[in-house]
Every structure is written in structure tokens, then in C-alpha cells.
Amino acid sequence: MATKAVCVLKGDGPVQGIINFEQKESNGPVKVWGSIKGLTEGLHGFHVHEFGDNTAGCTSAGPHFNPLSRKHGGPKDEERHVGDLGNVTADKDGVADVSIEDSVISLSGDHCIIGRTLVVHEKADDLGKGGNEESTKTGNAGSRLACGVIGIAQ
């Protein structure tokens, strides 16, 4: 089992970053940390998408990683996509320092995120509470600013 993974985020604009993942036990939580720069100040949706395909930019990554066919939600919700990591918060300089621990994603097994795409979005994720159909699919997080395929790390 891989215990570490990394993702280099890039987009068409100024947004870029490096996100690290570490899972010490196969059924334990995954620590997610790193930094994203070039964002507007505020909240930005942060999700693992189904495919590791960036051939047409971030759009070819498909929908959120959702092997259990659930509705979109927040990272602490029972009803959520596996890939729903909530929001990252950018400061006035456009930098989001990421520090998350998640017990639904994994670096092995059915919820493995390796080979899938991590995406940072234009807007805040409403965590499935926006009151419309799009909220239950995407959290109304808007366009995909930057993305990268999650790969095994040393």
C-alpha cells in the first residue's frame, strides 16, 4: 500500500500549488496538507474528481469521485461524495494553506484517490446545502481553477 501521495495543481491562470497526502494505516485517516497560491481571497471548493484525465484541462477530470452514488455534502457529513473535501481558505495575498484530515478518502482500496484528479474551484462549496439540484452534485463551487493528478510519492 502506498502511504504517501502528492498532487501538483496547475491551471490556465495564476492558480498553482502542491498538496501532499499521507496515510499511516490502511483504514486510518489521510492527512492532506500543502499550499495553493494565486486564488482570490475567501473560500474555494476542494474536491477529488473521478478521473485522472487532464487532456482537456480540468474539465476532463469528470464529476466528483463518488463510488457510493451519494449526494454532495461537506467533509463531516454522512451523506457526501468520497471526493468531497470541503473548502480551502485563501488569505488576502491569495494563498491557501491547506491542513485537512479526512477519514473517507484513502490511498488504497475502494476509496483510493491515487490516479484521480484534485481540483480547486472558483467559488465556495455550499456543502450540499444550497437548496438546488446543482448543490447536491457540485456544491455550486463554480469553474475549475486548477487541477492535477494525484500520484504515489516516496
Rank of each mutant, 00 (worst) to 15 (best):
A2T: 13
T3D: 10
T3E: 03
A5P: 03
A5C: 04
V8R: 13
V8P: 02
V8S: 13
G11W: 02
G13F: 09
Q16Y: 08
I19D: 04
F21S: 07
F21W: 01
E22P: 01
S26G: 12
G28S: 02
P29R: 07
V30T: 09
S35F: 15
K37D: 13
G38P: 00
L39K: 02
E41N: 04
E41S: 09
G42A: 01
H44P: 01
H47W: 00
H47E: 04
H47D: 08
H47K: 05
V48N: 00
H49I: 14
E50L: 05
N54R: 14
A56M: 05
C58W: 08
P63S: 15
H64G: 01
F65E: 07
N66L: 04
P67R: 12
S69T: 09
K71Y: 05
H72R: 05
H72M: 07
G73D: 08
G74M: 08
G74V: 15
E79F: 15
E79G: 09
G83P: 04
T89A: 13
T89C: 12
D91E: 14
D91I: 02
K92R: 07
D93G: 11
V95I: 12
D97C: 15
V98C: 04
I100M: 11
E101G: 04
D102E: 04
D102M: 02
S103M: 13
H111S: 11
H111T: 11
H111I: 05
C112D: 04
C112W: 04
I113A: 01
I114Q: 00
R116I: 04
L118I: 04
V119A: 12
V119D: 10
V120P: 00
E122W: 02
K123E: 14
A124Y: 13
D126T: 06
L127S: 10
G128A: 06
G128I: 04
G128F: 11
G130Q: 08
N132L: 13
E133K: 05
S135C: 07
T136I: 15
T138V: 09
G139V: 07
N140T: 11
S143H: 13
R144M: 09
C147N: 04
G151F: 15
I152S: 05
I152C: 09
I152Y: 08
